[in-house]
Write a protein that binds this DNA or RNA. Structure first.
Lengths: 118, 118
DNA sequence: GCATTATTTCCATATCCATTGAAATATGAA
DNA sequence: TTCATATTTCAATGGATATGGAAATAATGC
């Protein structure tokens, strides 16, 4: 993942309602949820929700497909994975022991020695 | 980490210059870097840099201390770690195999089954 | 075709964000 | 004390963001 994409993904998740939307879609799994269902659960106006979906989609964090009258949105786990990878590599570099999640803290990861700035 | 803090940290990192600043501080390690050194490396105006440092600090991502005339900023690895934990728990829940970083993908983490929404 | 449901598009708006220039503060050296 | 260095504070500004209302589009059923 490039820096550009990481910033986009971070910005997409850095908003209360959007983070809720994304978490809801993550819970729902790969099948996704119709927009109306998300709107109902999170009590968001449909046009507001479209706005947020657009941003998540621009950041590559969700996919859409039509099913009858409904639009089904689903989380893109691959992008989320890439974002976690980016943050781990670029924001913990050389300090794995302090920064990696506890479960991974003891694992030495050679790839974390590399750098990149764009 | 609470949702509120996660959104703050995400927002702090979701900006080109700030992400650069943070990555530079991560590279520098716990000793940190004087503001002027960061400004020089990233070619940022000192007042602009202060603005970004403030936001990183509000999000708990950096610390400051004075050393003579210089202000030394340092990355807070604990907060970054907490953010990674939050994202892994809340945005990959139940799909560890798809979403956890490769190094951890095969590890089963019981704590990742829990939920929280604030 | 007409009505209904689901969602998006368009427009307006208030607020927030990032940057700039100029002035202020703090520290250290002569 | 005076000067230079390092950084912050303040005020102004253009641009982006999130939300709301009203209208438009798309798909389905009658």
């Amino acid at each position: 993942m490039k820096k550009r994409d990481a910033v986009a993904a971070l910005a997409a998740l850095a908003q209360d309602n959007r983070l809720d939307v994304f978490r809801l879609l993550v819970e729902a799994g790969p099948e996704g949820l119709p927009a109306g269902s998300v709107a109902g659960t999170l009590k968001l106006a449909p046009n507001t929700l479209t706005f947020h979906f657009d941003r998540l989609r621009d950041a590559g964090l969700v996919t859409v497909r039509r099913d009858g009258r409904s639009m089904i949105y689903a989380a893109r786990f691959d992008t989320m994975n890439a974002l976690l990878g980016y943050l781990t590599e670029n924001c913990c570099e050389g300090r794995v022991e302090q920064c990696a999640t506890p479960e991974c803290a003891s694992v030495d990861i050679p790839s974390l020695r590399k750098k990149e700035r764009v």
